[in-house]
Design a protein around this nucleic acid. Structure first.
Lengths: 195, 195
DNA sequence: TGCAATATTTTCAGACTGTGCAAGGAAGAA
DNA sequence: TTCTTCCTTGCACAGTCTGAAAATATTGCA
């Protein structure tokens, strides 16, 4: 059994390595940095680096916050309008993401140019989406609709981050508001009959 | 200038290499195959392999068909209900994908377990999504809605393929129909007020 | 405190990936 | 044919990642 102290230390080291990775990646592109440099900067051996992350792209992404169990349950048992409840769920998650804006920005820029990093994040998001689908299945009978909504939700987060990266002085929460409105409008458009 | 003949030869070789990659990947997992083995099986040198694809994951994915320019223009200038026109656009694309069902199935299974491959495909899809967003911008004023719809569209394709992989005897086109219906239903759910 | 058990980090060796470069070969153009 | 261009190849080399075992550090407990 791993003691809580050790788990905490592990998380700290993981974060140290991510920090070192991102700092180096701000000067050079991630591709031009070697794992050796990162390990050196983080103060661990190369082998230890690989004990924490399978590759430097994963190190750059770090350990993104998963959807909160509590929030998922709240969504599951919510009784408001579905769209309002989902929006609230996303707001909560955005709040968590906003705690590490600096990291989010750098990771975002890396994701834009690095396919491998995108793939790793996509894998993580697929898992999150699945867990969200499960939660939504309690409120939506049709599995396809539940899956669609979960997909819309993770998508909205991604697009909100994208918008926030582009627009100076637009807070994350506000970016989500805009994206969300776009989603609602798009839904309306999809239900519109021909002119 | 590259002569048409050479371009054709190049495409053929690219396909040969993909074929060799997929054949080997059907026995072993892609991770356990070396580029050397693939090159040998494809009858080219390792160095040539890397002239065609930057890595074995890209070789497995090959050159996925992009959205047809013609179809995008038809969507752009279409005058039917937006949802019907998008659906038709997707139907057309699915038809193209269905021409290589065998490859699609193997690639699908690889994508499920291989992050790097996912990343490569994600990058490709991001480009396609962008071009679709441009096309939709002619019919939808709000950029967010256009981006949302484009995202929904590529998403639907992905989910349709996923469904088709799971359900025995469900044609690709039928899978898209189901997924699309889920999308429409989800749109309706999002516009619903609280109970 | 100090020992034993356990977890972590490091060292080392080695297989595999991916690129630059220069030589050789094949197809198309003149 | 001869020239040109593109493609393929072999070779060398830097970098990635893994397995195994030795060296350290941490924890729980006497």
């Amino acid at each position: 059994m791993t003691s809580p102290l050790r788990q905490k230390r592990r998380l700290e080291t993981a974060r140290e390595i991510q920090k070192a990775t991102l700092e180096l990646a701000m000067k050079d592109r991630l591709e031009d940095i070697t794992t050796e440099e990162i390990a050196l900067a983080a103060g661990v051996s190369t082998r230890t680096f690989f004990n924490y992350y399978p590759n430097k792209e994963a190190a750059a992404i770090g350990l993104p916050p998963p959807f909160s169990q509590e929030d998922k349950e709240a969504l599951q048992h919510g009784s408001g309008a579905l769209s309002a409840d989902i929006k609230q769920f996303l707001d909560k998650h955005m709040e968590v993401l906003a705690r590490d804006e600096a990291i989010l920005r750098i990771v975002g820029s890396i994701l834009r140019s690095n396919e491998k990093a995108r793939g790793i994040l996509a894998g993580f998001l697929a898992g999150e989406r699945e867990s969200l689908t499960d939660a939504l299945s309690y409120r939506v009978e049709d599995p396809q609709s539940a899956a669609t909504l979960a997909s819309h939700a993770t998508d909205a987060i991604g697009r909100a981050i994208h918008l926030w990266e582009q627009e100076e002085n637009l807070p994350l929460a506000a970016a989500l508001d805009i994206v969300w409105q776009g989603l609602i409008d798009a839904s309306r458009l999809l239900l519109l009959p021909a002119d």
